[in-house]
Simulated assay, not measured.
Amino acid sequence: MGSGRPTIYDVARLAGVSTATVSRALNGTGQIAPATGAAIDAAVRQLGYQPNTVARSLVTKSTQTIALLLPDIANPFYAELVSGIQQRALAAGSTMLLCTTEGDPEREEQYLSLLRAKQVDGVLVDGLVLPPERIADFVREGLPIVCLDRDIDSTSVPLVQVDNRLGARLAIEHLLSLGHTRIAHVAGAPGLRISDERVGGYRDALAAAAVEHDPALVAVGSFTEQGGYEATRALLAASKLTAVFAANDLSALGVMHAIAESGRGVPDDVSVVGFDDLRLAGHTTPPLTTIHQPAFEIAQRATQLLLDLAAGRGVPQRLHLLEPELVVRGSTAAPGLTEPM
């Protein structure tokens, strides 16, 4: 062997087998005797051999690469998704590419076109705004796509997400059980189905308790801290309320800021419930009562579905809903004896 980079021929010579046998062993494409496999592994380690991934992809029809398209990377919830996807991908011998779209449909289409040209094995998407028929075109052209968290209106794309409507019902039922009836909702971004589902769960729980829905108690917070803050300021100025259900934990931070700035206390004057159960939820003042959605499990499930599609295995079920869970901390309590503020 020369002093250059070791080749498959060097591995075969050291292991005492043919290059075809080494290729089958490394690509997992044939039956290899245990002793032969052990000899090849030992030769690979001794030589420090790194397989040619381009050549391997020609044999296996897989680049062992998947991609994730996110609208942004500012939301800590997305960090939990990335962690779950990366762990499952690595366990399957794949790497993950991360692309941020900023909610721009042209950029989404550019990324999907580029990823298809690069022959990635598949793409996970969250929060795409590209028209569903265009996404369906990519699927028909052979690019496996799985949606997680925020869905898209396409029957050709599997979806993994938490049961958003149920999660919202759990939040409102908790507040109702404490004695609240003047419950405001700081909603998510308009036009998103997950926002609509959480509003729907809010209204379902009120109706089941025979509490009349007051449209003046709903304001848009768009899933951001600033949005939650501004929505709550408007709600406090215009309505009497004793509790707020925020569409996510980030907007709940803005809700708590606005309540404190108004001279009120959480939960003494106003109780607050979020949605997501981010890691920071347990470290707010007071710690935030919230709805836990299993981000890591959502990510792992969606990644496995994508790997199955990429391997040619069918996915008969389109919708995969995971159960939310109420996590009670210090931001909720029974309403005080004073009039609602």
Rank of each mutant, 00 (worst) to 15 (best):
A117I: 10
L319V: 15
Q300D: 15
D163G: 02
I85L: 02
I259R: 12
V220P: 00
P34W: 06
L130G: 04
T284W: 03
T21H: 03
A246M: 05
L280F: 10
T65F: 04
V315F: 02
P294H: 02
S331E: 07
S154H: 09
A334M: 09
V54K: 06
L319N: 13
H320E: 04
R233T: 13
Y49V: 08
N248R: 10
A234Y: 11
P105H: 10
L288F: 08
G265Q: 11
D149R: 10
G282Q: 02
A35D: 15
A205K: 06
T65Q: 03
G314D: 13
M96E: 09
A237S: 14
R193G: 09
T289L: 01
R203G: 14
A247N: 08
E109Q: 11
E325I: 04
A91N: 14
A168R: 10
A252W: 01
R24K: 08
P6F: 10
T338P: 15
T181A: 14
S262T: 12
V11K: 00
V220N: 03
Y78I: 06
P51M: 03
R182D: 10
G201I: 01
H292C: 12
P144K: 01
M96G: 00
E108S: 02
A42V: 02
A208D: 04
L47D: 15
T36W: 03
A295M: 00
F245V: 07
R150W: 04
K240R: 09
Q110T: 11
L130F: 09
P335D: 13
T232P: 01
R318T: 00
L321T: 13
H180W: 04
L69W: 07
T338H: 14
N248E: 10
A216F: 09
C147H: 02
D277N: 06
L69R: 04
A189F: 12
T100Q: 01
Q87R: 12
Y78P: 09
M1Y: 15
A15Y: 09
S262N: 01
T65L: 05
R203S: 15
G336C: 06
G37H: 00
E297G: 13
A302Q: 11
S62F: 07
A219K: 13
V244T: 06
P71Y: 01
L253A: 14
L309G: 12
A209N: 08
F138V: 02
L128I: 06
H185V: 14
V255Y: 11
R13C: 05
G265N: 15
V270E: 12
L81H: 02
D149I: 05
F245C: 14
E106Y: 03
P158G: 08
T289N: 14
S331W: 01
V120Q: 06
L178G: 06
D214I: 07
L98E: 01
N52W: 05
L26Q: 07
E297M: 08
G282P: 04
A237F: 05
D72Q: 07
A136R: 01
P132F: 14
A117Q: 14
F296Q: 08
G227L: 01
F275G: 03
S156P: 10
L112H: 05
T155A: 15
G142W: 00
V211E: 13
F138Q: 04
G84C: 00
A39Y: 14
G201S: 00
